[in-house]
Amino acid sequence: MEPQLSHRITDSVATVVIRHPAKRNAMTAAMWRALPPLLERFASDPGVRALVLTGEGGTFCAGADITTLRESPQQAQQLSVAAEEALAAFPKPSLAAVRGHCVGGGAQLAAACDLRLAEEGAQFGVTPARLGLVYPASSTRRLASLVGPSAAKYLLFSAELIDAGRALRTGLVDEVLPEGELDKRVGDLTRILTARSQLTQAAAKEFANGRTDRDAHWAEQGRDNCDTMEGVAAFLERRQPHFTWSMTYPEGAGA
């Protein structure tokens, strides 16, 4: 099988699958390049309300294909950072579903998602110290924000792998599921996410990520918007709300 990012859309959830089984789903240069435009396509699709990133088979992603590092370490890092930043900037909820190894560039991608669910037996590692690479500044800051400076330093200094239990305790993952239960939990959670207000989610994501230049925009969106009226009406009528605000409307407005 050729290395590739396969994808599908089911029930408003876009799923991207990292496929490179010959090298434990390591990312090639072509795969890094393919991710940002794919995310842009999903971001502009009103039929997509959430994103799941996972790996083929029993491995999430073992990092960058080492041949790309041998050819041009600088270019390989530029490609991985561009893909990571595109994933972090994806305006809808994103979730990494992790089995097996989530190492190097794989850990970069998982950290750039909003949420991370892992199966028991998963292993995580941030490994540039094994290769003498300077980990990108943006990636280092994102990791430290996620797990705290001390845990980030342990991962970066040692390049050791940690198990899913330790990843849960440090905040690197949000939930650890028994073997065989990851897909069901991902399905249940994405059904919850896609039923909630995209307006709430989009504003919360920007606020949580530290963006401050659009506070006035979101304050304006929050006034007399369709989702608030629908949410209140549904609560009073004791029914499930049907939220209609969409990221694809002009200026991000759905009201």
Rank of each mutant, 00 (worst) to 15 (best):
T10L: 01
Q201I: 15
R239M: 09
T248L: 03
W245E: 15
H20I: 01
L39Q: 04
D213H: 09
E237N: 13
A144I: 02
Q198P: 00
A89W: 08
L35V: 02
L95V: 06
S80A: 15
L95K: 10
A122T: 01
V103M: 06
T10C: 05
A107L: 15
D11V: 04
A30E: 13
F207G: 00
V16S: 09
G105H: 13
F42H: 03
T228R: 07
A34P: 08
G106Y: 06
C113S: 01
G121I: 09
H7Y: 10
G106I: 02
Q221G: 14
C226R: 14
S197C: 11
D227S: 01
R130Q: 12
A159Y: 01
L53H: 06
L177V: 09
Q123I: 13
T28V: 01
S80T: 08
R99Y: 06
E84M: 15
R185W: 12
A234H: 11
A14S: 09
L161V: 05
P178W: 09
G148E: 08
L161F: 08
A83P: 03
A76E: 07
T228N: 03
R142L: 15
C102N: 12
K184A: 15
T54M: 12
T248N: 07
A112H: 09
E120G: 05
L168K: 14
T244W: 07
A86T: 07
T244S: 15
G55T: 04
A253V: 12
R116L: 07
L53E: 08
A144C: 02
Q74R: 13
A216Q: 03
F235N: 05
K23S: 14
A234N: 13
G47A: 11
C226A: 15
E56T: 10
G55H: 05
A22L: 14
H20W: 03
L177C: 13
A43R: 06
F157K: 12
A96V: 05
H20C: 04
G231C: 06
R19Q: 13
G231A: 13
H217L: 12
P36T: 04
L115A: 14
T15W: 04
A88P: 00
